[in-house]
Amino acid sequence: MAKAKKIEQSESQAHAHSFLKAAVREFKRDKIAMISFFFLVIVVFGVFIGSMFIPRDAFSNVDIMDTNLAPFTNGHILGTDDGGRDEFLLVVIAARNSLSISIPVTIVIMAVGIFLGLMSAYYGGFFDWIWMRITDYLSIVPTLMILLTLLTIINNYSIWTLVWVISLFSWIGSMRFFRALTFAERENDYVKASKLSGSSSLAIMWKQIFPNLSSQFYAQTALAFAGNIGLETGISYLGYGLPYTTPSLGTLVNKATDPEVMTQSPWMWLPASFLILALSVSLIFIGQALRRVADQRQSLA
């Protein structure tokens, strides 16, 4: 039994391996996707590792002499803000905070999405009907406004509260995506064959159907990640994300609402804005390259 499991494992590795191979081939052909990938890796690791080296008190003692410094003065690469805090360090911390929300949100909505999407399409019938009504309903309520309202009602929250609140409405898209894919996949005779081979519904869903969606899953994850960065920074930009003491990239961009800052001290909001753009754009390029890989494999099958 254990041995059988081992074989299955090595085979699923072989499958993952072939996806990896196809993905590597695609990224080698698509230089922009390649650059995006390395950029993303560097930013994510750089930000998480780098922020560990920033002392806790880096921002606590406000330096009145160093306020509103332009970039490249007094050793501040990106200048300082109105409180004399170093902009570069701020951006690193803010990026870490933003990613600490958007990464868990992505994981939550992809997990919920694939789970509900598979189940809903596979079982069909009443189960599917009820979930479709729920998603229909959630997609007609004014999502952003309700999110903001919820965040004002829950006035004392942690990163995790924020993760759950943002996920509350965002899983709908990924669920519908996987539901549609599963519906198409379910029509194949191999699903019937599996049933006749004595496999349980759960085994058919996860061992038979899911491997056929996995390439799409990776592509969709990249695109959802980009969307969640936008959502989190957008909410923070409006002032309802993390508290001011834990800045997000959106909080930094929010400084641009002051026309004075926007025109006179662009270094306070430009770097954060560029970082948001660069992260989203690179994730889009990665997602598209992965989608091409997924489509090729789909057509191959």
Partner: peptide
């Protein structure tokens, strides 16, 4: 048991011959 008309659709494209025959 059953033999299907469309052999392409009745075999899971992500499974090896070994895995396919091993299932039942």
């Amino acid at each position: 048991q059953m033999i299907f008309q469309d052999s392409m659709s009745s075999l899971n494209p992500r499974k090896t011959v070994y895995q396919i025959i091993a299932e039942p």
